[in-house]
Design a protein around this nucleic acid. Structure first.
Lengths: 275, 275
DNA sequence: CCGTATTTGTTCGTATGTATT
DNA sequence: CAATACATACGAACAAATACG
């Protein structure tokens, strides 16, 4: 018996789940039943269930039981632009409706702030410089989907882009608005993607389990003008368990758009025999 | 008392960690000391510590104690190609050495397999068609960094690209080899990024904690030729806690290369006042 | 190398609270 | 209201890993 008992119980249940013997949504035996099946104490079977929870394989519902998690089909976000059409022409709304879902965006919450570390660095401002932040919550089919905050240097407002500090959506997009209002063109952007644990706000908004099991993907997009100067930085947070991201480079056939369904790992594992 | 006790203990410790009162690498009070400080039982303070572990804030070392985790500075992978230069000209090795680290790649493990769901779909082959897989383990400074498997349709081998089925690295890159050997040019690729929990192989190779807390980022890259036909699909898995990914679109200034250090969320949270 | 103290890991028992049916 | 099922909390004992003399 190399492994502790709660691990052996957990591996046994895991095998039953992954083999399909316990399908999505089905209820596991109750703690009392597991205790009898494995001849362990209730605390020990609870440790096994906790291990499964930390893998995202099951969830517990007080008063009901323990259930194999249902897989929601992931939403795919395109972070690159189609070859045809201007830079970043597609908006959030068009991305989503194209897939037959109903997008919602809250009106922006606008704040005037002092730039801190990461934002100041990305915008090449000194710490403490004034920036405008515009924060929006985005939903798909009434499900919370992402939290987005964009930071702009205050000089753009002073130069006449006053709609930045109005709490109303800029329908045509800020990129186009900058072109018409200021003559500033965004000719490129850089996306940095990282995965981290959610902060308390994100946990509440996305209704994530409060054990921090589900990570968030943060996409940091910095836009540049013709002089190579950064004109804005956008931080968007997505729950990692319901999102995928696609980048196309060069020429890619059209059909590679919709969700392709199965995303199981194509055997990145051990060799068929030996190691 | 709204929250359970173990949560209040955990939040208190969390606050001490995030405020810097408990710096990286420092030891937390022992379970016995915590039990005295918070007047709770050992099991309760252990539940609090488990909550911190699941957030990746601390780690326990049997026989030693509980410690605030050390942050390793993340490695940045560029998934887009520089504007100058051919499609996908940069190789893994040059990406890494440019940042002053020593890359290592194992010789490929070559297998002949039957295409399954995801791979068959991406390569537009029928299920059960023959494919060649080439699997490599990649290290940086002797730290396991990624697991990569590329799948090619067998027809390329039959057409003369015999080096695909040799267990030796293809120094100039498979993309270039395809051009010289077969006259096939990759004119674009599509990257799909997703986050999932590690499988047992990845847990061992990356030395991840066996509680599945650290996710892996999987990058699925499908390459296309001039006819829009897929010529290969590469699946690369990275531990989510040590990696970031950068995509550049359009024109982006040169300096946006090195690790920019701080990756704290730039305030995607609640408003300064109210909700 | 050995033995001891310290610290976390595992397992059991028990009691009580809370959510759902 | 009662029954069921999971959540929290306490106490206890022994095992395993580590550090130190």
């Amino acid at each position: 018996m190399p492994d502790p008992m709660y691990r052996r119980i957990a591996e046994d249940l895991r095998q039953k789940i992954e083999s399909g013997e316990l399908g999505h949504g089905t209820q596991l035996p109750t703690e009392l039943e597991l205790r009898e099946q494995y001849e362990a104490s209730r605390n020990t079977v609870r440790d096994a269930v906790k291990w499964l929870i930390s893998r995202g394989l099951v969830e517990t519902r007080p008063g009901q039981g323990t259930f194999v998690v249902e897989m929601t089909d992931p939403f795919v976000t395109f972070l690159s632009v189609p070859e045809t059409g201007g830079l970043e022409g597609v908006s959030y709304a068009s991305e989503v409706t194209a897939l037959g879902r109903k997008p919602t965006i809250t009106p922006p919450r606008v704040e005037i702030q002092l730039a801190t570390g990461a934002v100041a660095g990305a915008l090449r401002l000194s710490e403490g410089a004034t920036v405008v932040s515009r924060h929006q919550q985005r939903f798909i089919d009434d499900t919370p989907w992402s939290l987005q905050t964009t930071f702009y240097p205050m000089r753009f407002v002073e130069a006449g882009a006053v709609r930045l500090i109005q709490a109303a959506d800029i329908g045509e997009g800020v990129v186009k608005y900058f072109t018409t209002a200021l003559g500033i063109k965004q000719i490129g952007y850089s996306d940095k993607i990282l995965v981290r644990s959610p902060d308390p706000n994100e946990t509440v908004f996305f209704k994530l389990p409060d054990d921090g099991r589900v990570a968030v993907v943060e996409v940091l997009r910095t836009g540049y003008d013709e002089n190579g100067d950064p004109i804005r930085v956008t931080a968007t947070a997505y729950p990692a368990d319901r999102n995928q991201f696609v980048f196309n480079v060069g020429h890619v056939p059209e059909e590679i758009a919709g969700p392709t369904g199965g995303q199981a790992t194509p055997a990145n594992g051990a060799p068929s025999k030996g190691g």
